[in-house]
């Protein structure tokens, strides 16, 4: 069912099950992801999207199965992975500047006891420039807007100079301009053969943004290139009887009938 990947997969998940209090949140997930793609994880609330990326990075105990990155166990390749957590997961009143937060991305490379050097500051500043935040380097993080907080997190992830990036809803609560800037950056990263895996909510933009999609609802519904995988049938299987979301699906079906309308104007939700 899943198309074969000829080169070494960036990520291989085999028979992965995660359970909280014996209640499975993810059940028997089997997938392989190619390198150098922008990959979206979609599914309804509670489908286990965030759990999938946390479990993949070894932040949660697995009930069964294993994960391999670049054909190696995760602990051997820690410095090749990067993580952008949900924005609400930290306390933004923490006494730190934007620069302090971005420098945290360098900590993994530095290792124990070593101090931050000028070279690390240069990398951090360069990453801030990429996300358009260099003017805010010394700004206290509590004074940032939601979009600026998200871009700070993104700069921190970039500062890790990793090969595979896991992002938990990077577009939540950011304005349209920031979303466009971020997606441009992610596409540039995949062109440089980085693999970017994004938990995503907005079904309207899936076809524009992602090369691959993972469709998830506790079980894996489908995983593959967007044009062959993001189909009406898979969407119905993923979202099932969720009424509010069926209207979104209806929207997408309608747009499929009128392909010339795509991209002209994005409906306001």
């Amino acid at each position: 069912m899943q198309p074969e990947i000829t080169t070494t997969p960036a990520l291989e998940v085999h028979d992965l099950t995660v359970a909280f209090d014996r209640k499975p949140v993810l059940w028997n997930i089997d997938l392989k992801l190619p390198a150098g793609k922008l990959i979206g994880i979609i599914g309804p609330n509670g489908a286990g999207k965030s759990t999938l990326i946390k479990a993949t990075m070894g932040l949660l105990p697995l009930s069964s199965g294993y994960v391999r990155l670049y054909d190696q166990p995760i602990d051997n390749v820690r410095n090749r992975i990067s993580y952008v957590p949900q924005r609400e997961s930290v306390d933004w009143d923490f006494p730190a500047s934007v620069m302090d937060v971005v420098l945290m991305g360098r900590y993994g490379k530095l290792g124990l006891f070593r101090r931050v050097r000028q070279a690390d500051r240069d990398v951090a500043l360069d990453c801030l420039r990429k996300v358009g935040m260099e003017a805010y380097a010394n700004r206290q993080i509590s004074q940032l807007s939601g979009g600026q907080q998200q871009r700070t997190f993104l700069a921190r992830a970039l500062a890790q100079q990793a090969d595979i990036y896991f992002m938990d809803e990077p577009f939540a609560g950011v304005d349209a301009a920031t979303e466009k800037a971020i997606i441009g950056l992610l596409q540039a990263m995949t062109e440089a053969q980085k693999t970017v895996i994004v938990v995503h909510h907005d079904l309207q933009s899936v076809t524009h943004y992602f090369d691959w999609v993972i469709m998830l609802n506790t079980r894996l519904v489908a995983c593959g290139p967007t044009e062959t995988t993001f189909t009406q049938q898979n969407l119905q299987e993923t979202y099932g009887g969720k009424l509010t979301l069926l209207s979104d699906v209806g929207d997408l079906i309608r747009r499929e009938n009128f392909p010339n309308r795509e991209g002209v104007s994005k409906p306001v939700l």
Binding site: M57, L59, R78, I81, S89, F94, M104, Y107, G108, R115
Partner: peptide
């Protein structure tokens, strides 16, 4: 570094292997 990072963002620290 480790104390600061695990205080500010423990999940990110774990992802780095700290």
């Amino acid at each position: 570094k480790e104390l600061l990072l695990t205080t500010f963002d423990p999940a990110f620290a774990s992802a780095l292997g700290i």
